[in-house]
Nucleic acid binder design. Structure first.
Length: 656
DNA sequence: GCCCTCCGCGCCCTCTGCTGGATCTCT
DNA sequence: AAGAGATCCAGCAGAGGGCGCGGAGGGC
């Protein structure tokens, strides 16, 4: 970088701004072929008095050795200049204009690294001495990364002075360089003799001086193209010279043509000089209008005013149809489109989508193209817009910014919390009713799952488990299968046994196979059913077990089973209905027999038919009698069951 | 120089829908 | 007790609406 190569002459310079530009950042900073080079602070710190504005900038226009720089199309640059001070005794002035400063330790020169001496326009000397013993000059920092040596050899600046702000075409350019407070401009032709370097085109050099924050004069040099077009009634701006500089020749062939000002940094063109110069500013960092509240700087007063309104809450543009008000009229127009007129000028060419804003259409188009420009740095997820990526990043950070005000549960998304609040803490929570059945489901999305699982049409017929019926909808199948609920739908193929539960059939089938997979480890007795083993363990191997006894209140005889007691009662006292029983030794009222069954207690009432407690019998020889109250299935199954109990009876007992 | 309008970017929000784990119910 | 299925629930992403705000250019 050229500026960095300048041997810092120390105290004689106020400041030379280094270029911030880095090769790796070129593409980032380049927009429309423009490379901005920002001044960097602190290259050389000022020691002298505050820099004065240029009083004159002169340049010898026709030095034969002056190189002519013909920038390529992509070589549009903005150069940053800075006035510097030199003690006059250190420099042998060679008059105004380009000064070929010999490379020495004492003088600032800018040489390419190839050590080839180039008469670079590195220093522009000012004619007047602002202070005795102090000479002003302008250094031009041209980094060699941007300008190849061969290009530099062709460089030629033909500097003119133009102090007329926003000079209109044809206006007399009057030098006025004495004031330092306001920014000043210099318009210059670059081509030697003011001739267009290419047909119908001239290069313009704009130099703008603005006091920077340190009170020093930052000068922005902009090289632009001027395109000449035929126009008869438009006069050319007359070239005027700097106070002490030679007058340049007006561009040949310019007379009678209208000028279209074309920005070299972007495709912008304008026939109006003031518009053009205003445009040129967008390529600079000039922001003279400071917000007094936040010190943010703006290019224009209007922008500043709008900004200040955001501080003060001033919203001058009020909607006539609602209470909304906005800082700018544009916001109001947009608001009205969204809320009132529903005008949507931006229409998707692929679908019927239309939007109020172009950016929304652009975002929408991504849903067609699948473009996902916003890549997560921690996973493969990529988003179509920045907000989704930001929201996605919470899945990595674990952040849950939304808190339920009632139970303080936290959520990653506001919508999730909203549903939570509505359904957990809300009143009259709306339920979603299935249109095909009576089911109501809290969430719509779950209703959709319900519809998909139960009410979607299946192309293949789903067969009933119990009969040949078939259905194309699962819900109909389930409803149908429920009609089989009280049927003994599980039938043994080897006998007449039938039961309601499949597991009962499985247990029953062991009576055919003889399989007894459940072993008592204490007495090595095998059982066909796990439940029977459990009962066995409780009765014979649990010392704390006390069996229930069904007592005949008439004679006091005890029975282990309800059915035996019933049989006994008929014999004992046909007229007496009351039967007492004792549970765990305490006399209790036995349950009344019903049509469905005898009303078993949780524990089995285990007494032998003789009335002896089961403890009196040998384990493994327990002969449980037929239980007559278990329904008709027991009649078929009892003869095959272990110890005479139906498996359903046992399951029921265990379940209790 | 200022106003007006348009534009673009960013941010936040809502609605929507899918997914999978947890829980409940039924068998 | 256990499995299967239904429902509940939170997480997460897609899509789009609405607004804030600064920038840029035309017109006066």
């Amino acid at each position: 970088m050229a500026a960095a190569e300048v041997p810092v002459p120390s105290e004689h310079f106020t400041q030379i701004k280094e270029q911030k530009w880095k090769p790796g950042e070129e593409e980032e900073k380049e927009e429309g072929g423009v490379q901005r080079m920002e001044a960097q602070e602190g290259a050389v710190e000022a020691e002298a008095a505050p820099c004065q504005l240029l009083d004159a900038v002169g340049l010898q226009k026709d030095q034969p050795e002056l190189p002519l720089w013909v920038p390529a199309e992509s070589d549009r640059r903005i150069l940053t200049l800075q006035t510097v001070h030199l003690a006059p005794q250190e420099v042998h002035l060679q008059g105004l204009g380009w000064l070929s400063v010999p490379h020495s330790e004492e003088f600032p020169v800018m040489l390419p690294q190839e050590e080839t001496f180039l008469p670079l326009p590195s220093v522009l000397w000012l004619e007047q001495e602002p202070q005795p013993g102090l000479q002003h000059c302008v250094t031009i920092s041209i980094p060699e990364e941007l300008y190849q040596p061969e290009e530099l050899e062709l460089m030629h600046f033909h500097l003119l002075q133009d102090s007329v702000p926003a000079a209109e075409v044809g206006q007399e350019l009057t030098p006025n360089l004495g004031e330092s407070a306001a920014p000043r401009k210099f318009e210059d032709q670059l081509s030697p003799g003011g001739e267009p370097d290419t047909e119908g085109e001239e290069r313009l050099l704009f130099v703008e001086m603005t006091p920077n924050s340190e009170g020093k004069d930052a000068i922005l040099l902009t090289i632009s193209h001027l395109r000449l077009e035929e126009q008869q009634d438009q006069a050319l701006p007359q070239q005027s010279s700097a106070p002490n500089a030679e007058t340049t020749t007006p561009p040949r062939g310019a007379k009678g043509k209208t000028r279209t000002f074309q920005c070299d940094a972007c495709p912008f063109t304008s026939s109006k000089f003031s518009t053009f110069t205003r445009h040129v500013k967008i390529h600079s960092d000039e922001r003279p209008h400071l917000c007094h509240l936040c010190l943010k700087a703006f290019r224009t007063v209007t922008l500043l005013r709008n900004h200040v309104n955001t501080h003060t809450g001033t919203r001058p543009h009020k909607c006539g149809d609602c209470d909304m008000a906005f800082v700018t009229s544009g916001e109001l127009v947009r608001h009205r489109r969204y809320k009132h007129t529903h005008e949507k000028p931006f229409k998707c060419s692929i679908c019927k989508y239309a939007s109020v804003e172009a950016s929304k259409l652009k975002r929408h188009i991504r849903s067609h193209t699948g473009e996902r420009p916003f890549q997560c740095c921690q996973c493969t997820y990529a988003s179509k817009d920045t907000y989704k990526l930001k929201r996605h990043m919470r899945t990595h950070s674990g952040e849950k910014p939304y808190e339920c005000p009632t139970c303080h549960a936290r959520f990653t998304q506001s919508g999730t919390m909203k549903i939570h609040v509505a359904q957990k803490h809300g009143e009259n929570v709306p339920k979603h009713e299935c249109p095909h059945c009576a089911t109501t489901i809290a969430r719509k999305s779950d209703l959709r799952v319900h519809l998909r699982n139960l009410h979607s049409h299946s192309p293949e017929e789903i067969k009933c488990r119990y009969c040949p019926a078939g259905f194309h909808e699962r819900y109909a199948l389930i409803q149908h299968q429920r009609t089989h609920k009280n049927e003994k739908k599980f039938k043994c193929k080897q006998c007449d046994y039938a039961c309601k539960q499949e597991r009962c059939l499985k247990a029953h089938l062991r009576t055919h196979t003889g399989e007894k997979p459940f072993l008592c480890l204490d007495c090595s007795k095998h059982f066909r059913q796990k439940q029977l083993l459990t009962v066995h363990l409780r009765k014979y191997h649990d010392p704390s077990f006390v069996p229930d006894v069904h007592l005949c209140l008439k004679c006091g005889k005890g029975f282990s089973r309800w059915s035996n007691l019933q049989r006994h009662r008929k014999k004992c006292d046909s007229e007496q209905e009351k039967v007492a029983t004792s549970k765990n030794g305490r006399p209790v009222q036995t349950r009344q027999a019903t049509e469905e069954g005898p009303g078993w207690d949780n524990g089995m009432s285990l007494l032998t038919d003789s009335g002896l407690p089961i403890e009196a019998q040998c384990p493994g020889e327990l002969a449980l009698g037929h239980h007559g109250g278990g329904g008709s299935e027991s009649a078929a199954g009892s003869e095959n069951l272990d110890e005479g109990l139906t498996c359903e009876m046992i399951f029921n007992m265990m379940d209790k």
